Computed example of a mutant assay.
Amino acid sequence: MNVPSGVNLVFHSIRPGGGMERYVMDVIAELCRRGISVRGIARKVDWHDAPQGAEFVVMRDRTPVSRLNNLLFERNALHACRPDWKTIGISRVPGAVDLAIVGGTHIGHLHDKGKRYPGLFDRLTIRHETQFYRKAKLIMPHSKRVAGEISQLYDIPVSKVAVHYPPVDTQKFSLAAREKREAIRQTLGIRSDQFMLLFPSNNHKLKGAELILQALQAFGGKVILVVAGKAPLQAPHVVNAGFCQDMPALYAAADATILASKYEAFGLVGPESILCGTPVLFANTIGAVEVLREPGCYVFGRSVDELMDCLQKVVNLREEGLPRSPEWVGQSLDYPYSIFMHVNNLLSLLG
């Protein structure tokens, strides 16, 4: 494995957040830990304690329209790269990169939304995305589902595509977070006889809030939905925790974590929650179900009845007393989830 002296990484938002934002910061931190310099090119950067060896180029927005700013950023971002370094593209840059990392495809997203007629910005995004895939030397999707979309919907040769599931920071997400479990539950007002169901979401509609709320009606106040995200969700038996900086403690406080997304390329909250000792309820539309297993992951079809049955099963298991041990975690995660192994694979693909 050849180790580059430096890497350009293009992603529109390098700052604390969920999903791909967290992934990008983890990858940059691990590259810098190995002595590999990183130039991050982004629209927005907020990382006050960035590691030594990381530098950032911020390309300022030119218009008040966010989607237009994203397109302009994608068209111009590669100009800010160091030409003597390898380049990783995560934003859909319509130019040549050494490695394209893909968390989800836009056509797949539109299909799952049921949007039959793409708008102007959708068409421009798909144009960028198609060029991004065609010009990349190699493509690393975060699930087999996404790999299938890239080859089938964009006509990309399978030989260019190598699936590697996203990692988790095991120093941050671990069973040690359970030390704060009772304190967090008290802060949220969750009684010991209530089942705390955690819903991490910054887009309630896409994450399946309507389906979840319909299923919860059968449980009355026995199950409390705790929403972790910037936007509140107004409904009975819901607690809005807001944006949470200490997600490991929130996972550990919960009895289960849920996603019922219409489209979710992977769903990093799954392994994060499991590593903190809390099982997940995932719709079968979520990419992570490819590598998550019982007793840590319980899968349901996107219907009220199937979700109710799945939730009742996990509620019953909680009352029986689920074990919380490294063995329980190991049985539930069926892929190499450490950031160390993931970056090894990434560097191998960079060549």
Rank of each mutant, 00 (worst) to 15 (best):
P4D: 12
G6F: 11
V10P: 08
H12A: 04
R15A: 15
G19F: 15
V24E: 08
D26G: 14
G35T: 07
S37Y: 07
R39F: 00
K44L: 06
D46A: 15
D46T: 09
W47C: 00
P51Q: 10
R62C: 04
T63C: 01
S66C: 06
R67G: 05
N70L: 14
L72W: 00
F73P: 00
L78S: 11
I90Y: 00
A100C: 09
G104H: 11
T105K: 08
I107L: 08
H111M: 12
G114W: 15
R116M: 14
Y117I: 00
G119F: 00
L120H: 00
L120T: 00
R123Q: 04
I126R: 07
T130V: 15
Y133T: 15
K135R: 15
L138S: 13
M140C: 13
V146I: 13
A147R: 05
K160E: 04
A162D: 15
Y165F: 12
V168F: 05
T170M: 14
F173I: 05
S174Q: 14
A177F: 09
A177Y: 09
A177T: 07
E179P: 01
E179D: 07
I190P: 06
Q194L: 11
L197R: 08
L198D: 13
S201W: 07
N203L: 13
G208A: 07
Q214M: 03
K222H: 12
I224A: 15
I224N: 06
L225Y: 02
V227E: 05
A235T: 05
A241M: 09
G242W: 00
G242D: 02
M247L: 12
P248K: 12
A249I: 10
T257W: 07
S261L: 03
F266A: 07
G270T: 03
L275S: 13
V280F: 06
G287F: 01
V291P: 00
C297E: 04
V299P: 03
F300N: 03
G301W: 03
L307K: 01
V315G: 02
E320L: 13
P323C: 06
W328S: 02
V329H: 09
S338I: 12
N344G: 14
N345L: 12
N345M: 12
L346I: 05
